[in-house]
């Protein structure tokens, strides 16, 4: 019998993590949930107002704008990021000269702090001083309001998010590809399967779990985007480019409406959980044999 076989010892081993998780995750979530039903300025006694914060959220145009922006960023990121990072992993899996350096370069943006990523891209996307418009101007094109307007900003944020995340996603795909059994590939090659057929009928189906992991990670990361928006536009003009988290920050800490901010935080948590669990359920449903 090994040491961890008895139940109380297992509980003893799990207890520290459980206590920390409860103290730093479960308790704050429940605490926030409680505050979401109050009017609270950050000090003094919170005033119980029931569902008023949630009713106010439903009528808050900036909330809907930030939700819309988050959805735009989510859709663009998933549609572009997942295929692009998988394609990159496929390319970099091949034995080519400088492959290691290429992988390091692609991964590079993932290790830059998001606040710096935002700062870097301000100098590229700014409509007046940004590099991109200068290049466009050189070729005779009119400047474009990449950020700071009310149309392109969420797409620009998605672009920057993709740039900063693609290396991380690629690395997970790359690790998944390395784990694929070589004998299956060899057998399919002997049976005359083309590269495309191998990719479609062997690689992608066998990477299903990896796709699920990357997708869930990217969904949760999109729901956490804050620094990019903060640096690129500060949420402006007039909250037109807020994401859910940046708007929650504004409401909670700039407006000091803690109860309202916590209601927003609860909505973000529910949305993130619903989208992630929904995707997992969908992926599992597809996986079930007929």
């Amino acid at each position: 019998m090994i040491w961890v076989s008895s139940r109380w010892k297992i509980l003893l081993m799990v207890a520290p993590a459980l206590i920390v998780f409860t103290a730093f995750v479960i308790y704050p979530v429940l605490y926030s949930l409680g505050f979401s039903f109050t009017k609270f300025q950050g000090f003094g006694a919170p005033e119980w107002i029931g569902l008023d914060n949630y009713v106010a959220l439903a009528a808050d145009p900036f909330f809907w704008q930030s939700l819309q922006n988050t959805i735009v960023i989510l859709v663009v990121s998933l549609v572009v990021l997942i295929p692009a990072s998988f394609a990159l992993a496929l390319l970099l899996r091949r034995r080519v000269t400088g492959g290691g350096a290429m992988r390091a370069l692609v991964f590079g943006p993932a290790i830059i702090a998001p606040i710096l990523v935002g700062l870097i891209w301000v100098f590229i996307l700014d409509p007046k001083i940004g590099l991109l418009n200068r290049v466009l101007g050189f070729f005779g094109f009119a400047p474009v309001q990449w950020i700071g307007g009310d149309t392109l900003t969420p797409y620009s944020v998605a672009l920057v998010f993709i740039w900063s995340s693609i290396g991380f996603a690629m690395t997970i795909f790359y690790a998944g590809l390395q784990l694929l059994p070589a004998d299956v590939m060899e057998a399919s090659a002997l049976d005359g399967a083309t590269g495309w057929q191998q990719l479609r009928h062997i690689t992608v189906p066998m990477m299903r779990e990896t796709f699920a992991i990357v997708t869930i990670l990217m969904i949760t990361n999109v729901f956490k985007i804050f620094e990019l928006v903060y640096m690129l536009t500060g949420g402006g003009p007039v909250h037109r480019s807020e994401t859910l988290v940046s708007y929650m920050y504004f409401v909670t800490f700039t407006n000091q409406q803690y109860g309202y901010g916590m209601a927003l935080a609860v909505i973000i948590t529910i949305l993130g959980a619903v989208v992630s669990v929904g995707y997992l359920a969908l992926a599992r449903g597809r996986k079930q044999p007929a």
């Binding site: 700014d126 409509p127 007046k128 001083i129 950020i147 700071g148 690129l232 536009t233």
Partner: peptide, 9 residues
């Protein structure tokens, strides 16, 4: 006003 008043700090 400057054209980048939104993005300028």
């Amino acid at each position: 006003f400057s054209s980048n008043v939104s993005t300028q700090t």
